[in-house]
Amino acid sequence: MIDREQVHHVANLSRLALTETEETELTGQLNSILDYFEQLSELDTEGVEPTTRAIDVSNVARKDELKPAPNREEILDCAPERDGDFVRVPQIMGDS
């Protein structure tokens, strides 16, 4: 069983501002959702890899492989702003 305190706690973590009445209503709803979860728990799927989509989609990105770049200048030219052999980035620390 989930109680209102738990709902209040998770809502806070999610930065959701709820009234006490809303928290009470949501406690009932979350307990219904807990029922769904328990329905799934009755079936052993522990060794099964989770799916990320209704149908598997192969990764469209190429393999992430480490290899030397042929042209240093080409890489530096990709930067939005460069300064000689350096890439300029916005300041993220204060002056002091």
């Binding site: 959702i33 769904y36 979860f37 799934l40 728990s41 079936l43 799927t45 522990e46 099964v48 890899e49 989770p50 799916t51 990320t52 209704a54």
Partner: peptide, 12 residues
């Protein structure tokens, strides 16, 4: 964990 459980079930 509930979401993951549902995703595992989906493959099954």
């Amino acid at each position: 964990a509930w979401y993951l459980k549902a995703q595992r079930f989906r493959r099954w």
